[in-house]
């Protein structure tokens, strides 16, 4: 992959080199797809949300104030897009359907017990309130600091800490019901 900085690639795209945008897609797609998967619970919605986020970013690229931080800017777009998508769709039902498919397709490399553990985590995550799920994933999966979380979500640090705390309590509670942790 080209080692150019985000700012250099953004500048090329803004000058008319549309194909250079592919480097930004390749750079951020996997990490941000994981976030969308956790927030929306199935591949179809996650891919749709991420594609839409990239498309919106492309449309507005000339208004990206700090191209060096293109990734953070794109992530804010994705966070908002996942909120919108999550509010529109019945996530839990789709998640369970998705989980069944995932189980059928699961590799034998993963012991059944580990698969079951992962399945329970996904179910528990799906049952969290969206704002708590968002805060938990940002904090513990994306490994963001609270200031970064605040910048990405537009939510105050105190509120985010409370959401993370409640998400953790709820996850412990749900997982202890079905699994000895």
């Amino acid at each position: 992959m080209d080692g150019s900085s985000d700012a250099a690639i953004v500048a090329r795209v803004v000058r008319g080199d549309v194909e250079a945008f592919g480097q930004l897609v390749a750079r951020y797609r996997d990490r941000y797809f994981r976030y969308a998967m956790h927030m929306l619970g199935n591949r179809e919605d996650a891919e749709e949300a991420l594609q839409d986020a990239f498309t919106r970013a492309f449309r507005s690229l000339s208004r990206c104030d700090d191209p060096e931080r293109f990734g953070a800017w794109l992530f804010r777009i994705l966070v908002n897009r996942c909120r919108t998508s999550g509010a529109r769709r019945s996530r839990r039902l789709r998640t369970f359907v998705s989980d069944e498919t995932a189980l059928m397709d699961a590799s034998e490399e993963h012991p059944a017990e580990q698969r079951a553990w992962r399945e329970e985590i996904d179910r528990a995550l799906a049952r969290l309130r969206p704002d708590q799920r968002e805060a938990f994933v940002l904090k513990y999966v994306e490994d963001l600091g609270y200031d970064e979380m605040s910048a990405a979500t537009g939510v105050g640090v105190s509120a985010l800490k409370m959401r993370v705390m409640r998400a953790c309590d709820r996850l412990r509670e749900m997982l202890s019901e079905v699994h000895s942790v």
Binding site: F21, R29, F33, R34, H38, I121, Y140, V141, C168
Partner: peptide, 26 residues
């Protein structure tokens, strides 16, 4: 919580044609 997070940090990748679809759109 760390055990949960470890599971969720596993890589997820979109479909192989994801890049092509995004680029077709842009």
């Amino acid at each position: 919580i760390e055990r949960i997070a470890d599971e969720l940090r596993e890589a997820e990748r979109p479909s192989a044609d994801f890049d092509a679809r995004v680029m077709a759109s842009v």
